[in-house]
């Protein structure tokens, strides 16, 4: 299922004029006489995001399709505690509050 933004091929932060232009371009290529379903899909997409009000309500009330596989994977992944070697530990002991390099190194080492 495509989002209205994908159907009209516009960015998520597109403004009214840009969305209208994209809609008209799509309509030009898919006139209502040719393919009714296609036209209706385009028109509904436009109606859903044509102005600020409709975009806000679209964002608030249209739940994105849930991807259960990804959600399950996330739930079953056990977070790894950061591995800290003696050298880093030692470094940490001597770290000043502005020792940015060391802090970064430490933060990166915890990531898988």
């Amino acid at each position: 299922m495509k989002t209205p933004y994908e159907i009209l091929n516009v960015a998520a932060d597109a403004g009214d004029a840009e969305i209208k232009q994209a809609y008209l371009r799509k309509v030009k290529g898919n006139p209502p006489d040719r393919d009714r379903e296609q036209f209706q899909t385009i028109h509904s997409a436009y109606e859903a995001i044509k102005d600020h009000k409709s975009r806000v309500s679209h964002a608030l009330f249209t739940a994105p399709e849930a991807d259960f596989e990804a959600l399950l994977d996330q739930a079953f992944t056990v977070a790894q505690p950061p591995r800290i070697g003696p050298e880093q530990f030692n470094g940490l002991l001597h770290a000043g509050i502005d020792d940015q390099t060391l802090l970064n190194a430490l933060a990166n080492s915890g990531k898988p």
Binding site: K20, Q21, L24, R25, K28
Partner: peptide, 8 residues
């Protein structure tokens, strides 16, 4: 509304 070749 007439715009971009569409009479709407």
């Amino acid at each position: 509304n007439v715009q971009s070749g569409v009479v709407e």
